[in-house]
Design a protein around this nucleic acid. Structure first.
Lengths: 249, 249
DNA sequence: GCATTCCATCTGGTATACAAGAAGCTTGCA
DNA sequence: TGCAAGCTTCTTGTATACCAGATGGAATGC
């Protein structure tokens, strides 16, 4: 009884670490283009924004730095790491390698994991029932990461997840075009079908084509989107300026 | 002139970050089995050892934690992450996938990077001239990492380097056996030869066999070495205890 | 008017103080 | 002697103070 109460109390009082919260929020801001690649900011800015002290803020920034999202310059502030399309292309290639390896292993399995069937169910739906929500990009990411996870190598899955997440910031932009969405449904369904039939080489070829298409498409539209985000950002800043001036009078 | 002086001064006065120093030293201690997997320690211990404050110590520990070398338990201290052979096996598999991909790309190149020739020079030496130094494990790691780097994908090379480094802690143990050293020279030379001849499939097969052999061998001897290290550690602790007792009298 | 120098200010790196949970020891009791 | 409650101590998480380098602008010399 005492134990139950105490553990209950614990689960209530154990608040999540502030550093984790700041980390997640900052990452979300970067993904939502509230912080645009190239933006400069200081630790004090983040402290003010999140009402936390520098210690957890610094921990969060260091994690983001290690993951490639931000950079610090010695006593000259932090910066959201600018887009480097060469890096993204390389990450796409890493994905190809890892996912093809996963497919090879999955096709060699006598008894495939049940998640394969679930994925098959999800992506093999008629055209008229397909969602066109932007959140479909999360489902897309889930498709790829759970394929790799299903292959059974947890370390490889972890690496692949990190890579996918880094790509995700621009990958989502691919899901603004209806034609690409339709293609994604079709291609995912076809890949899963080939895996279930254990046509390893063919499934790998499909996956390579699928990823390459995504890579090429994203490259085309990213520059445009980035430009739009920057415009919105500047407009917002002007608005703030007007308000400040009005208050000043 | 002033600029030259000031930049000179800068390069002198810019001392390396304490956090980096602590990070490197701690990692070295873990690799040298001064800190044994499973060992328990607190941030205060590290502070005392390195005469640094908690801030850089914590940064170092957090980096090591993200890289999988240590773990923290909420308000109950840190511990060196115990060996998990399943993880090592998985990391070996990741290496196989990445290195085979690199080989495939290298073999597809019309003009291969010059580093390939350098590696060929290094490993194709007569039996009687071969070094048996333990530092050969560094050369071995260099062989594999520069192969991947030569394939041209910097992100993939970075991931591969991290994986290789995590394995290195036990991989070195493989270089205590003369037969394994000889095999390494032979196999490296053969792999490079196949790459230069652009026999992609064959080179990949050789690499898979090579890595698998290393993996299997290391697994055999790691438990033994770990046992030895623990014995040495305890003997050292006893010694300290004796000294302390003598001082006490 | 222009360049240069110097200083106030801002930055991240480090040290330290404080908070609160976890663990182990001590003490009291049965 | 066994055991349990409570308290002391030790732990990490967080906040804050201090330091030195970097920066930008104002003041100064030409």
């Amino acid at each position: 009884m005492n134990q139950r109460l105490s553990s209950l109390h614990k689960s209530h009082s154990r608040r999540p670490r502030l550093a984790d919260h700041v980390y997640a929020k900052l990452k979300k801001m970067i993904f939502d283009f509230e912080l645009i690649p190239g933006d400069h900011f200081s630790e004090a800015d983040v402290v003010e924004r999140f009402e936390a002290s520098r210690t957890p803020v610094r921990e969060a920034l260091q994690r983001l730095q290690r993951e490639g999202y931000v950079e610090v310059r010695f006593r000259s502030g932090w910066q959201v790491r600018p887009f480097d399309f060469e890096v993204f292309e390389q990450l796409y290639d890493v994905r190809m390698v890892l996912e093809c390896s996963a497919i090879e292993r999955l096709c060699a399995m006598k008894r495939q994991p049940t998640v394969i069937e679930e994925l098959s169910e999800f992506w093999r739906i008629p055209v008229e029932k397909r969602s066109h929500d932007i959140r479909l990009s999360d489902d897309d990411q889930y498709f790829h990461t759970s394929l790799v996870a299903a292959a059974g190598n947890a370390e490889m899955a972890s690496i692949h997840r990190d890579v996918s997440e880094r790509i995700h910031i621009i990958r989502r932009l691919d899901f603004t075009q209806a034609s690409r969405i339709e293609a994604t449904f079709d291609e995912h369904a076809e890949i899963i079908h080939a895996i279930r039939k254990q046509h390893g080489e063919y499934a790998q070829q499909l996956m390579r084509t699928h990823i390459a298409a995504s890579r090429d498409e994203v490259r085309k539209i990213t520059l445009h989107m980035l430009h739009e985000a920057r415009k919105r950002h500047e407009a917002h800043e002007d608005e703030e300026l007007v308000k400040a001036n009005n208050r000043g009078r």
